[in-house]
Nucleic acid binder design. Sequence first.
DNA 1: AGACTTACTTTGCAGTTCTAGGTATGTATC
DNA 2: GATACATACCTAGAACTGCAAAGTAAGTCT
Lengths: 125, 125
Amino acid sequence: MLTEPIVPAAPMAQSNPPFMSGVPELLLLRLLDQQEMYGYELVRSIRQITGEAISLGEGVIYPALHTLERNGALKSRRKAVAGRTRVYYSLTAKGRTRLARLAKEWRRIQTGIEAALEAPAHAQT
Amino acid sequence: MLTEPIVPAAPMAQSNPPFMSGVPELLLLRLLDQQEMYGYELVRSIRQITGEAISLGEGVIYPALHTLERNGALKSRRKAVAGRTRVYYSLTAKGRTRLARLAKEWRRIQTGIEAALEAPAHAQT
DNA sequence: AGACTTACTTTGCAGTTCTAGGTATGTATC
DNA sequence: GATACATACCTAGAACTGCAAAGTAAGTCT
């Protein structure tokens, strides 16, 4: 049963977090370039590898994995472990190309922002 | 005259550039924190200060300025220069707070990504 | 039996950047 | 004076994407 949402849930919040676009994709490709992993594992790994700076929920990871696989950047295989079935993902050649391009793009932006933030000129010490 | 678009214009393109969310806002606040500026000027300044790494068109800048002013982060005043009218923007206290928060957020993400990209662990030399 | 963790999935919202087009005025060129 | 270019501002609409929330289900532990 249970046909109604009971409570619409309060919306609000500060909505769209800045600086996050493209980040999930970059991190997934980066991690999967090192070794085969499954979704749930990736969620924890991202938290860890970024030093708790970035935390992506399952609602972000799984859809992203599906999209990347659909695009041919990832390939997957099912594997039964401890009576449970996991879906392991790994990079394809296309995925490696994409990772390289994305990482380069990131560095470009990052360099640009850094230049702007350091911005001498004004002096405010 | 000229009442029709003549050609619908081909869409396509590679769509949404990654890593750009929040960036226009951050750069605008950063630049306007140093000195009063007008839209057209900001377009060029951003290109310059980021070392050509980031280039934001007028279609990005003006709406962003309007939104920031509406949110109370910026204040504006009209000024006639060389027979032309310019709209100069500058930071409000609220804008300064926002800049601080955004910059901090940027550094957090940036650090996280960097950690992930450098990621030793695997070794592939 | 109950509670918790693992593991995967889906829906819908929300907010943003970007391209492309359009207006208008001053200045330089022919 | 006509043409072209740079300055200066504005808007609409599309496209994308991350995120929270909720749900399913099966193991494990107490």
